[in-house]
Design a protein around this nucleic acid. Structure first.
Lengths: 222, 222
DNA sequence: TCTAGATTCAGTGTCATATTTGATCCGAAC
DNA sequence: GTTCGGATCAAATATGACACTGAATCTAGA
C-alpha cells in the first residue's frame, strides 16, 4: 500500500475514499483473506480519525469483502468452498438471464469491444490485469440488457469471488481454459445463438466453480 | 416512532440497534419513500451521538433502503417503476432456482409450516402482519435449498421491494389474488411438481410486478 | 431577468477522553 | 498438573464540543 498521507477532503467523503482504497487492495490480493484490519492503523495510514475508517469498514462489510466482529475488529473475509460454489451458482443463474436480455440488443460496438477485450487478455501475463479484462469481457456481453440493477448485482457477486479465482492462476492452467471458453462464448454471441451462449456460459462458470471449490477445499485441509 | 430514549449499549453496537429500528420503521411504512433522515434528529431520538447514526445510515444505504447524498443528507429510498420491475425479475430468476433446489428436500415439517403460514395469512386483516407472513410463506418454500447465500440475497431483494408492495393492498385486490396464487403454488409443491411450482411462482411474481409497476407509474405522474 | 455574494442548513470529521468487550495471563486452590 | 477466578491488555465503541465544508436558497444590484 503506497497511499502515503493523501488529502481525502477534496473529492467526496473520506469514508468513501478509504473504502475504495481498501477494496482495491483486497481485490488485488494485497490483503489476503483473514488479514486483520485495525482501525487505528488504517486511520494513521490515511491520516484521518478512526470515524471514517469505521464507516468504510461497515461499507466493505455490507459488500461481503470484510467481516466485522463486534469489539474484536475486522478481517478480510474468508470464503468457504460451499460459499464459493453457491456464489457461482447464483452468478450463473443471473448472468445467463442477463445475457438472454442483452443478446437481442447486441450491436457492432459491443461485439468490437468484447473482441478487443479478448485480444487484450491474450496479450497480458499480469494476473491483476487479466482479471480486470475478464470482468470487462463478461460485462460487455451483458451491457445491452437494459437492467442496471442486475448488472450491479452481478458486479457485487463478482467482487466477492474474483479475488479467490485469482489463485486458480498459479494452481491450474485456468487461464488457457478460460480463454478458450471465452472464445466459444463470443462466437455464439456473434451469431445471436442464445441457447448456445447460455449453455457455454453455464459450462464456463460451472467449470470455474468446480476448480475453485476443489482448491478451497484443499486450503481448508491445511 | 415511539422508541423513547432507550439504552442501546447493552446488546451490541449502537449502530446496529439504530439500523434495525430504522429498517423496521421503513419496512412498516412508518417512514415513506422520500422522507428526510436527519442525523441530528435521529441521534437525539435515540439519545446517542451522531457517530453511530452515521454508521447505521451507511449500513441501510448499502442495503438500498436509504439513499445518502453527500453533504445533503439521507432519504428513504424511492423506487422507480423500472427498478421495481427489474428487482422482481431478478427475484423471479433466483426464487425459481431456489425452489428447484429446495423441492427434492421438502419434508412434512416444511409443508406443515407453509400450510400454517397460509392459514394464518387468511385470518389477518393487518397489512404489516400479512406482509410478514407472506415472506415467511415464501421463505419456507426455499428453506431446504441448502443455499444460505441465495436465501440471504432473496431476503435483501425482498427488503428493497416489499414496502412498495404494501401499497397494492389499498390500490387493488392484491391480497385475494395473492392468496389464490399461494394456494396453487403450495398444492403443486405438495405433490413435488417442480415445473408447475416454478411456473406458478413465476406467474405470481410477474403479476405482482405488473400491478406494482403500473401503480408506481401512476405515482410518478402525480 | 440574471448574476454574484451572503446566508443557512446539515453534513463531515477532529480531538481528547471515557467506557466496554473479549482474549490472555497469572496466581491460588485443589 | 489442572482448573478457576481475577487482573490486565489491546482494541473497539462512543461522547460532546467544536471547526470546517458543501450545496441550496436568498437577497441585492446591475
Amino acid at each position: 500500500m503506497d497511499n502515503g498521507n493523501i488529502s481525502v477532503r477534496t473529492s467526496g467523503p473520506a469514508a468513501d475514499k478509504i473504502g475504495t482504497s481498501l477494496r482495491r487492495a483486497i481485490l488485488r490480493g494485497e490483503m489476503q483473506a483473514g488479514t486483520r484490519l485495525r482501525q487505528d492503523a488504517i486511520a494513521q495510514q490515511f491520516a484521518v480519525s478512526h470515524i471514517p475508517v469505521r464507516e468504510a469498514l461497515r461499507q466493505l462489510a455490507a459488500e461481503g469483502l470484510v467481516t466485522i466482529r463486534p469489539n474484536r475488529g475486522a478481517i478480510v473475509s474468508r470464503l468457504s468452498s460451499a460459499e464459493a460454489r453457491e456464489l457461482l451458482e447464483i452468478r450463473c443463474a443471473i448472468e445467463t438471464q442477463a445475457v438472454r436480455w442483452a443478446l437481442p440488443h447486441a450491436d457492432a460496438d459491443v461485439l468490437a469491444r468484447a473482441e478487443a477485450a479478448l485480444m487484450e487478455s491474450e496479450c497480458t501475463e499480469d494476473v491483476a490485469r487479466w482479471m480486470e479484462i475478464n470482468w470487462r469481457f463478461h460485462f460487455t456481453l451483458y451491457e445491452r440488457a437494459g437492467r442496471p440493477r442486475a448488472l450491479s448485482l452481478i458486479e457485487s457477486l463478482d467482487l466477492q469471488i474474483d479475488r479467490f479465482i485469482r489463485v486458480l492462476f498459479t494452481a491450474s492452467d485456468y487461464r488457457k481454459q478460460a480463454q478458450e471458453e471465452h472464445r466459444a462464448i463470443l462466437a455464439a454471441y456473434r451469431v445471436g445463438n442464445a441457447a448456445a451462449v447460455t449453455s457455454l456460459l453455464e459450462q464456463h462458470i460451472t467449470e470455474t466453480s468446480r476448480l475453485l471449490t476443489e482448491l478451497l477445499e484443499r486450503y481448508q485441509d491445511e
